[in-house]
Amino acid sequence: METAVSRTEEPVFRAATAADVPGLVALVESAYRGDASRAGWTTEADLLDGQRTDPDGVLAVVAGENSRLLVTERDGELVACCQLEHRDDHAYFGMFAVRPALQGGGLGKVVMAEAERFAREEWGAREMHMTVIRQRDDLIAWYERRGYRRTGRMTPFPYGDERFGLPLRDDLEFELLIKDLA
């Protein structure tokens, strides 16, 4: 008697290509903006309206000399991504998105672990840096549980630059989070 085997493959990681850009824009937008983003817990829809990214911005990361846009696929479908940028002795982590219906199932932890491994082993990065909207308490707590620490170093939100969205409040700013990778 045969037993049923799960058809869900382990995640496959690879560097994004220009052909991935439309799918990556759709993934990032679905995770952060609009009603579709409310299916997951990473939505910014209560803080920002408008776009989260655009094809030009994603292509710039894909083509960047010191950057990599890590794509995560499962069963041949794009399910997550993150940006990595090599900056001297550290790496910057950004554009992190998991398909909303898959959030909360552990995929984000796996993607983050792969990003950290890559930055440490391929680039020799000693730290991972990221910026998070400081009003995102749940998200910051999630990163803290993964070893990131708050620095208290804030940078202003780029009000007036619609490439980053349309703010729904006037007190947004980014906080730098850091994790030691060594």
Score class of each variant (00 low, 15 high):
residue 149 R to I: 12
residue 130 M to H: 03
residue 1 M to A: 15
residue 101 A to M: 04
residue 70 L to W: 00
residue 28 V to A: 14
residue 71 V to Q: 01
residue 93 F to W: 14
residue 25 V to L: 05
residue 6 S to Q: 08
residue 103 Q to L: 06
residue 117 R to M: 02
residue 171 D to Y: 13
residue 178 I to G: 06
residue 77 E to T: 03
residue 174 F to T: 03
residue 8 T to P: 00
residue 99 R to L: 15
residue 30 S to Y: 00
residue 66 N to W: 06
residue 7 R to K: 11
residue 167 P to W: 09
residue 158 P to L: 09
residue 140 I to S: 06
residue 11 P to I: 11
residue 174 F to N: 02
residue 16 A to H: 03
residue 66 N to E: 11
residue 53 T to F: 05
residue 67 S to M: 07
residue 146 R to C: 11
residue 164 F to L: 03
residue 161 D to T: 01
residue 66 N to A: 11
residue 130 M to P: 01
residue 173 E to D: 15
residue 12 V to N: 00
residue 48 L to S: 07
residue 99 R to P: 01
residue 160 G to L: 07
residue 11 P to A: 12
residue 40 G to P: 05
residue 106 G to V: 10
residue 36 A to S: 02
residue 4 A to R: 14
residue 42 T to K: 12
residue 139 L to K: 01
residue 71 V to F: 04
residue 16 A to L: 05
residue 131 T to D: 10
residue 168 L to Q: 12
residue 65 E to P: 09
residue 85 E to T: 13
residue 77 E to C: 06
residue 17 T to P: 00
residue 1 M to P: 10
residue 42 T to A: 15
residue 37 S to K: 06
residue 82 C to R: 02
residue 155 T to G: 08
residue 98 V to H: 11
residue 42 T to S: 15
residue 151 T to W: 13
residue 142 W to R: 06
residue 1 M to Y: 05
residue 12 V to P: 00
residue 59 L to R: 14
residue 160 G to A: 05
residue 114 E to I: 07
residue 59 L to S: 06
residue 133 I to V: 15
residue 143 Y to M: 07
residue 17 T to G: 13
residue 143 Y to T: 03
residue 112 M to V: 12
residue 8 T to W: 13
residue 167 P to R: 04
residue 1 M to L: 07
residue 97 A to W: 03
residue 53 T to E: 08
residue 3 T to E: 13
residue 177 L to I: 10
residue 37 S to M: 07
residue 133 I to R: 05
residue 159 Y to R: 04
residue 8 T to R: 13
residue 171 D to H: 11
residue 40 G to W: 09
residue 90 H to W: 14
residue 97 A to H: 04
residue 35 D to T: 14
residue 36 A to M: 02
residue 36 A to R: 14
residue 121 E to R: 12
residue 46 D to V: 09
residue 69 L to D: 03
residue 98 V to A: 05
residue 48 L to G: 04
residue 154 M to D: 07
residue 2 E to T: 14
residue 39 A to S: 05
residue 106 G to M: 12
residue 21 V to Y: 00
residue 92 Y to S: 05
residue 30 S to D: 15
residue 40 G to S: 07
residue 99 R to C: 05
residue 67 S to F: 00
residue 151 T to H: 07
residue 78 L to D: 00
residue 21 V to D: 02
residue 78 L to F: 05
residue 13 F to P: 03
residue 26 A to M: 02
residue 27 L to M: 09
residue 100 P to H: 10
residue 168 L to E: 03
residue 29 E to A: 07
residue 2 E to W: 02
residue 150 R to A: 10
residue 138 D to I: 00
residue 152 G to P: 03
residue 79 V to E: 06
residue 102 L to G: 12
residue 162 E to D: 14
residue 167 P to S: 02
residue 156 P to D: 15
residue 177 L to T: 09
residue 176 L to M: 12
residue 13 F to C: 03
residue 45 A to I: 02
residue 100 P to N: 09
residue 65 E to R: 14
residue 181 L to F: 11
residue 20 D to L: 01
residue 128 M to V: 13
residue 140 I to D: 03
residue 71 V to L: 04
residue 42 T to G: 08
residue 22 P to I: 07
residue 17 T to L: 06
residue 118 F to H: 14
residue 83 Q to S: 12
residue 181 L to P: 02
residue 58 V to L: 11
residue 3 T to L: 14
residue 76 G to C: 08
residue 46 D to S: 15
residue 72 T to Q: 02
residue 157 F to I: 01
residue 130 M to T: 15
residue 69 L to R: 04
residue 6 S to N: 14
residue 96 F to N: 01
residue 150 R to Q: 12
residue 3 T to M: 12
